[in-house]
Design a protein around this nucleic acid. Structure first.
Lengths: 157, 157
DNA sequence: TCGTTTTATATGATATCGCATATTATATTT
DNA sequence: AAATATAATATGCGATATCATATAAAACGA
């Protein structure tokens, strides 16, 4: 009996579709890796969407809602609600755009910025550990591929 | 005035943390790419968690709930509820394990398998288009990195 | 074997998410 | 300038997701 059949018998099954499917690989890598950091967030009493908003605003403060929602990978109405909560907690403030008053711009408060800075430090530390754990020397390549992918998909839709 | 400062003035801002953060790149690449296929699913009246369950069972039928939940990247109690719905729709069946009767094994129905096969074909077609769109010659490398990442993170937790 | 612990799934309550649409402001057309 | 169309955000509501825990079966210990 040849090796392949033996594997099947032992229920190590045929290759299967999912394990080689790009979207599944991306989703599960993201899920597992982010899961680790999300644990840390929980410890700090921060929810994932809040973290995303904090990090995105730290990079570019005063974004308008729609734009920020795309950047933070969330749906607009959900962001609006997240902003409500974060406003309550004194992490961000809303200010309507001077020029186009439909637009609402979101700004970090001092408290929010401090929190964001701390979390970004944690995130960097976590990323370092992760990369070491992966023993990935070619991490720059991976990042560059992913960036390319993001750029392509953003523009083409 | 040097180039860097000019950029800042033009609000093309400093590099920022998020754009180079591995977990963000993974999450957004996954979000954008999967988003495309999820549109197709919507068209077919299938929800994302249902698709995941179908695809996972197609690769390995009769999984127990906990195991399937991990594979399908969802939380156990949520899977239980998804299974309820899919059972209603005649896509899967529950059968309790002969040996250990705490365990519940989930099987595709004929209808479910047919649906799964069709969706997997769509997924393959979509992946082909995506890879072509990305002009990615080194896609095998990427996949292998992601697989390695998933394996590492699965075992180490 | 009885009590305790662990494991697997289900359930119920709560919070989150997302769609459809309302509201308000700007742009465009006539 | 009025009417209409488009754009940005908010809101309501139903669906989904998650947490904590209940239930039930098996494994383990004394």
């Amino acid at each position: 009996m040849d090796a392949d059949l033996k594997e099947i018998e032992a229920h190590e099954k045929e290759p299967g579709f999912v394990d080689g499917y790009l979207l599944y690989l991306l989703a599960s890598a993201s899920h597992l890796a982010s899961g680790q950091f999300h644990e840390e967030l929980r410890g700090a009493g921060i929810r994932v969407p809040e973290w995303r908003v904090l990090a995105c605003l730290r990079d570019d403060d005063g974004q308008m809602v729609t734009q920020l929602a795309r950047f933070a990978l969330m749906e607009q109405s959900h962001l609006t609600k997240t902003i409500d909560q974060m406003t309550e907690r004194g992490l961000v403030t809303r200010r309507s755009d001077e020029v186009d008053r439909r637009r609402v711009r979101i700004f970090l408060s001092d408290k929010g910025r401090e929190l964001a800075n701390g979390l970004v430090s944690q995130a960097k530390a976590h990323e370092d550990r992760l990369v070491r754990q992966l023993g990935a020397s070619d991490i720059a390549q991976i990042k560059s591929f992913l960036s390319h992918m993001v750029e392509t998909l953003e523009n083409n839709e």
